[in-house]
Write a protein that binds this DNA or RNA. Sequence first.
RNA 1: GCUAAGGUAGGGUAGCUGGACAUCCUAUAGGACUGUGGAUCCUUUGACCCGGGUUCGAGUCCCGGCCUUGGCCCCA
Length: 410
Amino acid sequence: MLQKPRGTRDFLPAEMAQRRYIERRMRTVARSFGYGEVQTPMFEELELFTLKSGEGIIGEMYAFEDKGGRKIALRPEITAAVVRAYVNEAQVAPKPLRWFYFAECFRYERPQKGRYRQFWQFGCELIGADSAAADAEVIALAYELLKSSGVRFILKIGHLAPMKHMLAGLDAVEQKKVMAALDKRDTDLLETTLAAIGHPDLFEPLVRLITAATLNEVWDVTGDIPEKERIEETFRYLAAQNIPFVQNFGIARGLDYYTGMVFEAFADNLGAENQILGGGVYRLAHLFGGKDVPSCGFAIGFDRVMVSLGEIVPEAAPVVAVVATPGTRAAAYAAAAAFRAAGITVVMDVMDRSFGAQLSSALKSGASYAALIGEKEAAAGTVTLKNLAQAAQKEMNLTDAVDEVANGSC
RNA sequence: GCUAAGGUAGGGUAGCUGGACAUCCUAUAGGACUGUGGAUCCUUUGACCCGGGUUCGAGUCCCGGCCUUGGCCCCA
C-alpha cells in the first residue's frame, strides 16, 4: 500500500470540521478589524525566499527546477509572498493595507510534535503605517485571533531597539551571536559568548534588560533611547484594550529584517514546538524591488493551535435523514429538496436498505432528525418528523416539518 | 542533520525466551427484523511496514530502509 509522504497528514471529515470551525472564527476576527483576505501562489521563484532569509534556508525548502529550468520553491512561509504581491500589484493602493491570509506552507524538516512538512499559517500584514497605533493594532489583532480559537497562550512583546543600542559597539557577526543567546534566554551561553568577544561588561546589563518586568527597568539599563516614546505609547494602547502580555526585550527572532516591535505567543502544552505565533515590524519591500514601506505582521501556526486545543466540538447544524421505502422515493426526494431549500442538510439512503435499517443508520451517523415517509405519509402528503435525540415523533405537513427543524425547536 | 523509543485488520490490542489455520474488542457489509432495531444474536470483510539474512521453520532473532512519536539542531 502507498503511504502518504513523510510529515504530511490526511484530514477526514470529523477533523476538518474542527479545523474549519477554528479557521472560520479567526477569519471573522480578522474581518472585524477590517482586514481583507489575499491569496498568493503556492510556489514562487526560489530567489524570493533566499533574498529574504539567505541561501542557508534552501536546505529546508522544497526547491526544484521546473520544466523550463526555473528555480522554484514551494512557499516555506507567506510574508515574503505577500510583500512580493504588494510590490507587484498594490504599491499605489491607499494606505494602510490590511491583509490576512490562511494558507499552507512547506518546509523540508524533521517532523515532530507540532511540526509537519505541510502546515498551515493564518497571518496578517498591516502595510504602510509606521506608528505606535499600528503596532498596537497588529498585536491586538494577534491577541484576539488566538483568543477566538480558545487556545491557552502567553503573549510576549519586545522591541529590538534597546538590545541594539546596547550592542552598538559590536560588529554584525558578534551582534548576531549575542542576540541568539538573548533570544534563548540562555545566560550561560550569553556569558561565554560575551567573554569570547571581549565584552564581559555587557553581561550584567543585558541580563537586567531581558529580565526587566517593567519599561522603567529597561530605561534604567539603556538610558533614554529614541524609541522610548514609541514603545511606551504602544504599551499604553495595549493596556487601554486590556490585552494581557509580558514584556520580553530579549526577543530577537530572525533579526534580519525585523526593525522594531517584535512579539511571540506560546502555548504551554505543546512540548518543544510551543511557539504558536510570531511577528513584528519589518521592512522587506525594498528587497523585492519595491519602494521601501513600513510594515507590521505576524503568522499563527494553525496546526499547533489545533494540537494545543485537542478535541473540540464545533456547533453542529442539524442533519435530517429522510427515510423512505422503495415506493415512496418520489415523495422523499420532494421532501429532501424542501429541507435543502431551507438550508438544512439532508441525507438519504443509497444502499437499498430496509426502512428499519435506514433509521438505524441515521441514528449511528449522528443525524438529529429522521423524516419518515412511508406509504401512509406519501398518500397523505405528510412526513413524520422524528427527533432522534428525544425519540419523539409527530406526523405533520412538510412545510411545518421544515420550519420545526429550521427553528431548532427540539 | 543528530538522538531515543516504536510499527500486528479502519481504530485499539494479545502473541514477541522462534513451531501448525495469529488472540480479543471495536468497526465495515449482510442477515435474524417486509414501518420506528443507536440494542441483541449470527455470518462476513479485514493485519504481522518493506527488503535482505540466520534457521528445517521468523510476527518473534540479526542487518538495512521506510514511516510514526518524543528530544536536539533549526525555526524564515
